[in-house]
Write a protein that binds this DNA or RNA. Structure first.
Lengths: 195, 195
DNA sequence: CGGGCAGATTAACCTATGTTAATAAATGAA
DNA sequence: TTCATTTATTAACATAGGTTAATCTGCCCG
């Protein structure tokens, strides 16, 4: 089993993963390699997989009212990404997922997910905690977004995610923060002149 | 067992709840009645419970940078509300929860939550799906918030939650939407004149 | 090595929302 | 009922961020 994944499982489940489980897990997933700009998922299709990023990076997005890209999530190595609503319901996905770099992912479909969770309680717990944490930080981020200005949001993002800053183009970070690339440029300039 | 709760469990777990489970569940929770403006939770304390609203309504909020109230969630009858980060970690809560009306809640502490989930798989599943859905809609709401204008957000909120509109003061809805009460007033006026 | 394209910056102007302050309407307690 | 308090509205002005458009930078690929 991939080391990143093992660490993720042990970290979030709070338990250590037996060799046996690790082997069993491998039977439920498969690996895929994608080029930069390749799509892991296209909005409108049903999302049949959850993806674990082994190397590279990708992001999910939707088209807003005006047809512009609205970034929803970034995923570097060690992150899971998917359109969960579609994955769990089988309905058409609202998001697309695109690779930012050449990317390797592990893929797991719904049947495998259900089976793996039933077979290994540690996984059931792992995914529950993962989603729980994602929900909690989403809720917090939402509160910050509605109460703070773009400059503060950018500063917090840059502080929290220095690794993202290196590898993700600014115009996508701007979208994620809910502003135009031009505005982000302006904000960066202001911040630079403050020091 | 309360009927709202039974329906919620059956709806989200996708299974029907046996009489036996229903009785067993009751041993894990207790009821509390609160006045309007009473606090279910005060920011800074540890959040020891999750609350299921039986009647009345409440909302969670935090103080933003300027010390203003930033609404995080509303909960009418049939909703769960808590500070999950604090509930699961035991750390101090970032949110407060206040009753909007005289309110009756069911309360469940962490030990009870863990026990109940272990004892009854239907509950484990219920809470997982509940959080999963909450996460999914939070992510979607976030994308809408960063890409759409206040007017659209208000219209969508009003359409999706006509029940909230009747019972929640406008200045709290404004906070939830990330705008000032004055701006919401202005937006409502514009919308009214459009018809 | 050089042309083309994606990404970033800059600037001028525009608009939605914030701010401040005053008033009005609704609610609730005595 | 009346008064006090909370909530909602209105208006004038300020500003963060959007829009448009032009320029700049770097880098990928032929």
């Amino acid at each position: 089993m991939n080391d990143l994944l093992r660490k993720s499982i042990e970290l979030y489940s709070g338990q250590s993963l037996s060799e046996e489980c690790a082997l069993q897990f491998n039977a439920f997933v498969f690996e895929k390699t994608l080029d930069k700009k390749a799509l892991l998922l296209e909005a409108g299709q049903s999302c049949n997989y959850i993806f674990f990023v082994l190397s590279g990076s990708c992001y999910s997005y939707l088209a807003d009212r005006k047809g512009d890209t609205q970034v929803v999530q970034f995923a570097l190595e060690g992150y899971w990404i998917s359109d969960l609503a579609s994955f769990f319901s089988g309905n058409k996905s609202t998001y697309s997922i695109e690779c930012l770099e050449p990317t390797k992912v592990l893929m797991m479909n719904k049947a495998a997910f259900e089976q793996a969770c039933s077979a290994m309680p540690i996984l059931e717990r792992y995914f529950r905690v993962l989603i729980q944490n994602a929900y909690v930080s989403m809720q917090y981020r939402m509160a910050k977004t509605t109460s703070e200005e773009a400059e503060d949001r950018y500063t917090e993002f840059a502080t929290r995610h220095p690794d993202f800053m290196q590898r993700i183009p600014q115009y996508l970070i701007a979208s994620y923060l809910g502003i135009q690339p031009q505005s982000l440029s302006r904000i960066r300039k202001q911040l630079a002149s403050k020091r």
